[in-house]
Write a protein that binds this DNA or RNA. Sequence first.
DNA 1: GAGTAAAATGTATAAATTTGCAACGTCATT
DNA 2: AATGACGTTGCAAATTTATACATTTTACTC
Lengths: 166, 166
Amino acid sequence: MAKGKNDRLMAIRMIIATRDISSQDEILGELKKRGFSLTQATLSRDIKELQIAKVPDGRGNYRYRIAPNTVMRQASQAEPLNTGSDLIRNCALSLEFSGQIAVLKTRPGYASVVADMVDKSQNDGIMGTLAGDDTVLIILRSTAQKQDVVYGLSRMLPNIGSKVIE
Amino acid sequence: MAKGKNDRLMAIRMIIATRDISSQDEILGELKKRGFSLTQATLSRDIKELQIAKVPDGRGNYRYRIAPNTVMRQASQAEPLNTGSDLIRNCALSLEFSGQIAVLKTRPGYASVVADMVDKSQNDGIMGTLAGDDTVLIILRSTAQKQDVVYGLSRMLPNIGSKVIE
DNA sequence: GAGTAAAATGTATAAATTTGCAACGTCATT
DNA sequence: AATGACGTTGCAAATTTATACATTTTACTC
């Protein structure tokens, strides 16, 4: 099972989203369980590339998390869109609207990745997004139509339409 | 011994919000310039307490950042307001409204500091704020008038009026 | 003021993370 | 096949960060 670097990066994201991890050696152990072969040095480089950080959790411990600085972006400043993997595409769990706000629930740890995709979906109705760990808050422009927003999102998240809570 | 621990913590927040810092020793140097006397060990503990993390910045370097609070602060619980420096005052870049929400963009890294100031501005129209890295989400009370909110903010951020996107 | 518990800090060290460098593999071109 | 550009990786060392332990300071009570 010769897995490429990209699979490894996705696996790292999944691991830190799923488990309470506080050192790179722990991540390394999880990766090896999953059949990856690498050293801690490479992992450190991967983590840098993924913008993952070791963050104090406020309860006396540390935890690896996807970088805070990808948390919020203005939709209009987005770059051209990028396909992304199925793994990412399928991690949107639900979408619910309330006035000019929409709340998009994701699998734990994926919110910032999904928020990034939402920003890149070039949707005029979206003013900006804010991502936590498993929730993306989407701020709509006052002129936005709910249907148009859902349609726009569906370009990046194909089956989002079926996840809308009415 | 000049200043208490709390002053030191505030100084650390200010330093990392203001400068591009990539190691604790650099922070230590800034603190000493400002008249604080401490060791790296104490700084490490302070950083843990403040939930500050060393985050890859996506451009090949690392930077210390305050962990974004994913929990909304209630404006009403704010302490009396505090002048703040010109540097902080001038880091609001734009302000845009959509219904009961306003999105305030700041220079990267300043959102939590600005959000803090907004909370302390004792503005009745503001229900609370949520800060990312360079964006502050301001949730307005349903009764709030946009003009009153802008006016209230201008007490903390003097030229915010000119940054409003219409 | 003496006594005591808790908090804060420094010292020294351990643990964790980053990085320079050389080596290897992949592609595209010659 | 040889060449070269480029990305990826391991190794080992350097750097950076966290922490165990001892000591000092602070805050409070008597």
